[in-house]
C-alpha cells in the first residue's frame, strides 16, 4: 500500500504502538498515510479502535508471518 511514513514498532507491546502512533500523527499532514509495523497481534483491534476514537481513517492491515502492517490516513490537522 502507498504510504508517506513508516513507524517501526517491531517488538513493542501494548500500549506502546498506540502511544507511538499518537505521537507520530501530530508530526504528519492531513491526507498523508502512515504505515505501522508491529509484532503485537493486539494492533488488529487496537488501531481501528484508535482511529474511530481520534477520527482518523483506518485503511487496512496486511499480515505476514506474525508481522502486521497497519495503514492509517490522517483526516484532520
Amino acid at each position: 500500500m502507498e504510504k508517506n511514513y513508516t513507524l517501526d514498532c517491531y517488538g513493542l507491546l501494548c500500549p506502546m504502538p498506540v502511544i507511538k502512533i499518537a505521537q507520530m500523527i501530530k508530526k504528519i499532514k492531513k491526507g498523508e498515510v502512515l504505515e505501522l509495523i508491529s509484532t503485537d497481534e493486539g494492533v488488529k483491534e487496537d488501531i481501528p479502535a484508535w482511529c474511530r476514537a481520534t477520527g482518523n481513517e483506518f485503511l487496512g492491515i496486511e499480515e505476514e508471518k506474525g508481522i502486521f502492517k497497519v495503514y492509517i490516513k490522517k483526516m484532520k490537522d
Binding site: C14, P15, V18, I19, I21, A22, Q23, W50, A53, T54
Partner: peptide, 8 residues
C-alpha cells in the same frame, strides 16, 4: 493513562 492520552 498513556493509552487514554493517546486516544485524545
Amino acid at each position: 493513562a498513556t493509552g487514554s492520552a493517546s486516544m485524545g
